[in-house]
């Protein structure tokens, strides 16, 4: 079957989709967007978290056909998404938060000059990334949590991220990263 939907603001079309394919498979294997990760394919790890019409969901559990005509944001579009949100919230005054915290490139693989969202930068700065496989899903989930709850308590953060497994960090640096992003967000406003 054919599926048309919007990903990170761009209309996309996927052809010859097998009816049992998930949104995750279509993103990764058909649209060249492998940022969302396939760690369990049973909704237990959150590595494939994307926003479907704004709502964080496990893309491995959304049938491809269910996204027809809908709007998806993945980790690849998170920086733009956050930038637009920041612009929108200041009534048209461009508040380029993402740029302010852009990566300071040091080494060859840093992806110098890449604009990042506050939560992405906080994950780098706090040391919340190790193998990084859980990172895309955590970023999408954490970004949405901070959108709803800009000043979360530690218990709020833990509950908000309880659907995202990480095997490397012991979660402490992830806690640090979310606290850091929240603090920077409240300073920035």
């Amino acid at each position: 079957m054919r599926v048309n939907f919007t990903v990170n603001g761009r209309p996309q079309e996927a052809d010859d989709v097998w009816e049992g394919e998930s949104l995750l498979y279509v993103l990764r294997e058909r649209l060249g967007l492998p940022g969302s990760k396939n760690a369990c394919e049973q909704g237990e790890c959150g590595s494939c978290t994307v926003r479907l019409d704004g709502v964080p969901v496990c893309s491995c559990l959304v049938a491809a056909g269910q996204v027809e005509g809908r709007d998806v944001v993945t980790v690849e579009g998170l920086a733009d998404f956050a930038k637009q949100r920041a612009c929108g919230s200041t009534c048209g005054t461009p508040l380029d938060e993402a740029k302010q915290w852009a990566a300071k490139g040091q080494d060859s693989q840093t992806g110098e000059g890449t604009e990042l969202s506050p939560i992405q930068q906080a994950f780098i700065d706090a040391g919340a990334v190790q193998c990084g496989f859980c990172t895309p899903g955590l970023l999408v989930a954490a970004d949405e949590m901070l959108e709803r709850n800009p000043n979360p308590t530690d218990a709020d953060i833990r509950e908000g991220l309880s659907g995202n497994l990480c095997r490397c960090t012991g979660y402490e640096k992830i806690m640090d990263a979310v606290r850091l992003a929240a603090a920077r967000q409240s300073e920035g406003v």
């Binding site: 940022g35 993945t74 980790v75 060859s108 693989q109 992405q120 930068q121 040391g127 990334v129 990084g132």
Partner: peptide
């Protein structure tokens, strides 16, 4: 020093290519 990961930006933007991302 606590320098930051050289692959950090690629990993937070989804561009870092894991073995399952190969195509």
């Amino acid at each position: 020093e606590s320098t930051l990961r050289p692959d950090g930006t690629l990993k937070v933007t989804g561009e870092f290519a894991y073995s399952s991302d190969m195509w």
